[in-house]
């Protein structure tokens, strides 16, 4: 028993990240209901939008837009329900207090949550894209794989940074996270152009919507998937640059808000009213 010397620093951080990601990864394996609720359900919604375009007689690439939008919904749902709202659930369940006194610190817990959630969501997104593309015979030609992966990676960092930012905000806000997450469903699907090119919103509305990293990420990836036919919102390089800036900003903001939340929680006792 004495060889169990606790690690510190980076090794502890890594252990904590793996520890916190474990329930997310193993949970998906144990409770198979996600197969239906997190894959089949978004797919059903996606197919409904595909039929809208079919009813409108839209070109084939629009079907591709919708399928990509369906996959993006999976990421957004994960970030809103399992990241942004997570502190709220953890507070309700009594975990948050424990997380606040463990020596690895809250950032390690959040990184673990993000990592675990991301792994599960990538699988869901791939399933949605694969099934949707098979059903509707959609073909993609990625013109620049490294750039495509770079856009995706930077967008994911920004997205999960936004999730952590929201996690602190939801808790500070004090409203039920359930409702706040609901607020960011259809309105975000609309503003970020999940199912249509965001250029249709107009320049300024599109720029406003670009605060959500998925807006520009979707547009950039569509440029790479449908080169020449997709009407770009901004040039690819500009979109990638803004996405990078967003990712850094959200990480900085998330860190600031986490500290603020920890401080307020300790100062005002907002984590619990039991005394």
């Amino acid at each position: 028993m004495n060889d169990a010397t606790p690690a510190r620093g980076m090794l502890r951080l890594l252990r904590a990240i793996l520890g916190r990601s474990y329930p997310r990864i193993i949970g998906a394996n144990r409770d198979k209901s996600w197969l239906f609720y997190d894959t089949v359900l978004p797919l059903l919604g996606t197919i409904a939008f595909v039929y809208v375009y079919k009813a409108l007689g839209a070109p084939e690439r629009f079907v591709g837009y919708v399928i990509m939008g369906g996959a993006t919904v999976a990421f957004w749902m994960n970030v809103m329900w399992s990241m942004a709202a997570q502190f709220y659930w953890d507070k309700q369940g009594g975990n948050l207090e424990l997380y606040m006194v463990v020596p690895c610190g809250i950032p390690a817990i959040l990184l673990g949550m993000s990592f675990g959630g991301f792994v599960g969501t990538v699988i869901r997104a791939i399933a949605i894209v694969a099934i949707g593309s098979l059903l509707f015979d959609v073909h993609y030609t990625v013109s620049q794989w490294p750039v495509f992966l770079l856009v995706f990676g930077v967008a994911i960092v920004g997205l999960y940074g936004l999730g952590v930012t929201f996690a602190s905000l939801f808790l500070l806000w004090g409203r039920e996270a359930w409702h706040m997450a609901n607020l960011f469903m259809e309105p975000v699907f609309f503003l970020s152009g999940f199912y249509f090119p965001v250029r249709a919103l107009g320049f300024w509305a599109g720029m406003g919507a670009s605060l959500i990293p998925l807006t520009l990420a979707l547009d950039a990836m569509r440029q790479l998937l449908f080169p020449g036919t997709h009407p770009p919102f901004l040039p690819l390089g500009t979109e990638l640059g803004i996405l990078g800036a967003l990712a850094i900003s959200f990480i900085v903001l998330a860190r600031f808000l986490l500290r603020k939340m920890e401080y307020l929680a300790r100062r005002e006792g907002r984590l619990s009213l039991r005394f």
Partner: peptide
């Protein structure tokens, strides 16, 4: 909550369809 459930979500859903229509 009225704003979320009676305005933002339903109008957001309807606007997605409207813009899909406008785009095509």
């Amino acid at each position: 909550l009225f704003f979320i459930y009676s305005i933002a979500r339903p109008l957001g859903g309807a606007l997605i369809l409207v813009f899909m229509y406008f785009v095509v």
